[in-house]
C-alpha cells in the first residue's frame, strides 16, 4: 500500500512535472464528468489496478498510537478492479440498459491538494490528491463522495498513464443504492 510520506511528498517533481501530473488529473476528471469512458480507459496502463476499500470506525486505545487511515481500511472493497473488469463496467454503461446510470447521473469531480513523490519504479510517480465527487441523479437525488486518491502514474511513450489507484473514502457506509461512477 502506498503510504503518505511527509519526507518525500511534494518535493520530488520539477515544476514542469508537477504541472503535467495536475493536468493529467484534471483531464481525467473532465473525461469522467463528460462520460467519455472509453477515452478514460485509454488513460490506464494495461496492468492498472483500481481499489476502493471499505473504511471502518476504529477506536484508539489509550496508551497506544493514534488510529491511522490504514487501520481503518477493510480487506473487502466496493471496487476491486483491474483494467479488464473496468472495461466491462465501461461497456455496460454503454448498453443503454444499465438502469442505475440511464438516465445518466450528472457528476462534478473536484481534484485538489496534489502532492508528488518518487514511485517504487523508475518513471513512476506516487501521487496523492483529494477528490470531491458530487452527483445529481434524476430529479432530486444528490450524493457526495469525498476521499483521498493514492495513485501511481507512469511515464510511457503515450505520456503519463494511471497504473494504480487506491481511493480512501471518508464514509463508513455508502449512503446510496448505487456507486456506478468512477472515483
Amino acid at each position: 500500500m502506498s503510504h503518505s510520506s511527509d519526507d518525500t511528498l511534494g518535493t520530488a517533481a520539477s515544476l514542469e512535472e508537477q504541472h503535467a501530473v495536475e493536468q493529467f488529473l484534471y483531464r481525467e476528471a473532465r473525461l469522467l464528468d463528460e462520460r467519455r469512458y472509453l477515452d478514460w480507459l485509454g488513460l490506464l496502463t494495461d496492468d492498472c489496478t483500481y481499489r476502493v476499500p471499505i473504511r471502518e470506525n476504529v477506536l484508539a486505545v489509550r496508551g497506544k498510537p493514534p488510529v491511522t487511515i490504514d487501520d481503518e481500511l477493510s480487506e473487502l472493497a466496493y471496487f476491486d478492479d483491474d483494467k479488464l473488469t473496468l472495461a466491462a463496467k465501461v461497456l455496460r454503461l454503454g448498453t443503454g440498459t444499465s438502469w442505475g446510470e440511464n438516465p445518466p447521473s450528472r457528476t462534478r469531480r473536484i481534484v485538489s491538494n496534489v502532492e508528488i513523490a518518487p514511485g517504487e519504479n523508475p518513471g513512476e510517480h506516487l501521487v496523492h490528491s483529494n477528490l470531491v465527487l458530487h452527483r445529481s441523479r434524476r430529479v432530486d437525488q444528490v450524493s457526495q463522495f469525498t476521499g483521498q486518491r493514492r495513485d501511481v502514474l507512469r511515464r510511457t511513450d503515450k505520456g503519463l498513464l494511471l497504473a494504480r489507484r487506491l481511493v480512501v473514502l471518508d464514509m463508513s457506509i455508502c449512503d446510496s443504492s448505487h456507486m456506478g461512477n468512477f472515483f
Partner: peptide, 24 residues
C-alpha cells in the same frame, strides 16, 4: 471469490446497481 463479489454485487456491482435503482 472476494473480487467476484465486488464486481457483481454490492453498490458498485454490475448487477446490484440496477437492483437498487428498481427497489427505490
Amino acid at each position: 471469490m472476494k473480487k467476484f463479489f465486488s464486481l457483481t454485487f454490492g453498490p458498485g456491482g454490475i448487477f446490484e446497481q440496477d437492483d437498487g435503482e428498481n427497489w427505490e
